[in-house]
Design a protein around this nucleic acid. Structure first.
Length: 455
DNA sequence: GCATGATCATGC
DNA sequence: GCATGATCATGC
């Protein structure tokens, strides 16, 4: 195929790529490689995931998909990434998925440094092609929406690249310890170790442990990638509070937050409210959350870096005895939909393996005040995933058996249970067998969370 | 004291 | 209007 670009020139490659904007693969190919379209149509359907990306490499840029350690456009060190956007009901365009990079080589990565890592070598310069995924469209008819070059080391902020480096080191350290089988995407903030295999039973060797581990690849988390997407679209929310605007504080998120809270640990809410100039005629129910906002110095309930890292901040109020009495809820599920899901594609699994929590722990005092005890960043440990799996599978089984009214209770499993979560008892959803049942969701058991707080 | 069901409060 | 975080009420 006569080349439409000069592969030794980034400018030339980008210029060619920019002509794709608002076009579909079918549009591009019918102009450039008309004779191959019918071949592609024949092949189409036999290919699996990665389909769109492979077609772009093969028929638009004219090289075969590879898994070299070299970048796709090796002469200029540019790696091509094709990745979908989706449209929310509100009309907002967001990233549909994480951005997945090359596989993590468990055996060799433990000898790498970040600066000379295979990840950075291959991926520091990216040509990003975002297309709009639409459910009922043929792959050839997705439209390209954003075409951008991303230079990881200079286009993202210094704070972000430091966080990404720290994430990389967190992952590598876990592998060094022989814990590759316990990796979770939720261990880290922006750069994650996402599972990547043709099926869920594939396992790989890891160093320092005979136990086999799921194959994983580096990825930029969906939430982080989405913050980049919003910038490209010119839609970033400038009112969001940013932790790293204050350059006198640590640039990495966990240290930054720890340093903001350090002066207040051990103090009561009364002392903190006095210090921060908060007065109430009547103390609102959300007073602890309002106090946290004041400590952060914002009126917004949203913090940019927490959104980018998919971290949910939760207030925990321990009883004076130190007991935690309240469990933690997850989104409600639909009885008719959950029965058709598989565990590893389920919403509950997705949440447990990608979400991080920031627990802000208060202890109630007998006089009615609270003491700010500690902060804890937490994500669901993979050691416990089989417990969660049991609860999920048991839930699906009982719904299929027409027993949506008898889902796993807190005594049946030490990690999670199912309970109502509705506006009131009339707030119901249909079951798949013609009845209605109050809205329910998965909860992490209070006693389980209480133990996790002490780890 | 705990399991379980139910509902309130708030923000988007 | 609804999802989500937070909390209450009841009965064993």
């Amino acid at each position: 195929m006569a080349s439409n670009y000069d592969d030794s020139s980034i400018t030339s490659i980008l210029k060619y790529a920019q002509t794709f904007k608002d076009k579909t693969l079918r549009d591009i190919m019918s102009h450039e490689v008309a004779e191959t379209v019918s071949d592609i149509n024949l092949e189409y359907g036999t290919r699996r995931k990665g389909n769109f990306g492979n077609l772009v490499e093969e028929y638009v840029f004219g090289y075969s998909p590879n898994n070299d350690s070299q970048a796709d456009f090796h002469k200029v060190g540019l790696e091509l990434k094709t990745t979908p956007l989706k449209k929310l009901k509100s009309g907002k365009l967001v990233s549909k998925e994480r951005l997945v990079f090359s596989m993590i080589d468990y055996m060799n990565i433990i000898n790498e440094t970040w600066e000379e890592s295979s990840f950075l070598t291959k991926n520091k310069l990216l040509l990003l092609l975002f297309y709009l995924y639409e459910k009922n469209l043929d792959t050839l008819d997705y439209k390209f929406k954003i075409i951008q070059i991303l230079d990881l080391l200079s286009d993202v902020s210094d704070a972000d690249i430091l966080q990404i480096k720290k994430d990389w080191e967190t992952i590598v350290n876990k592998i060094k310890k022989g814990d590759a089988h316990l990796l979770s995407e939720a261990d880290t903030l922006y750069l994650g170790a996402a599972t990547k295999a043709s099926n869920s039973s594939v396992r790989r060797q890891q160093p320092n442990n005979d136990e086999l581990a799921k194959p994983r690849a580096f990825s930029l988390k969906q939430t982080y990638l989405n913050s980049i997407v919003q910038t490209y679209l010119g839609k970033e929310d400038k009112t969001l509070f940013s932790l790293t605007d204050d350059k006198s504080l640590p640039p990495t998120i966990e240290e930054n937050i720890q340093s903001r809270f350090r002066p207040y640990l051990g103090k009561t809410n009364i002392e903190m409210e006095h210090e921060l100039g908060i007065t109430y005629k009547k103390r609102p129910k959300s007073h602890r959350r309002l106090l946290l906002n004041k400590i952060f110095g914002t009126n917004s309930n949203k913090i940019k870096e927490l959104e980018k890292a998919n971290i949910t901040m939760r207030v925990i109020a321990l009883e004076p005895s130190g007991r935690l009495t309240e469990s933690i809820s997850f989104p409600i599920f639909k009885y008719c939909e959950i029965v058709d899901e598989h565990w590893e594609e389920s919403n509950f699994y997705e949440q447990l393996t990608t979400k991080r929590f920031l627990f802000i722990v208060f202890k109630k005092n007998k006089d009615g005040s609270d003491t700010l005890e500690k902060l804890k960043f937490w994500n669901f440990p993979m050691q416990d995933i089989d417990n969660a799996k049991w609860v999920w599978e048991e839930t699906v089984k009982r719904i299929k058996d027409k027993k949506a009214n008898e889902l796993p209770g807190i005594k049946e499993n030490q990690v999670a249970h199912v309970r109502p979560h509705a506006r009131n008892k009339d707030d119901v959803l249909p079951t798949c067998y013609g009845t209605y049942e109050v809205k329910k969701c998965f909860w992490l058991n209070a006693k389980y969370i209480e133990k996790q707080l002490d780890k």
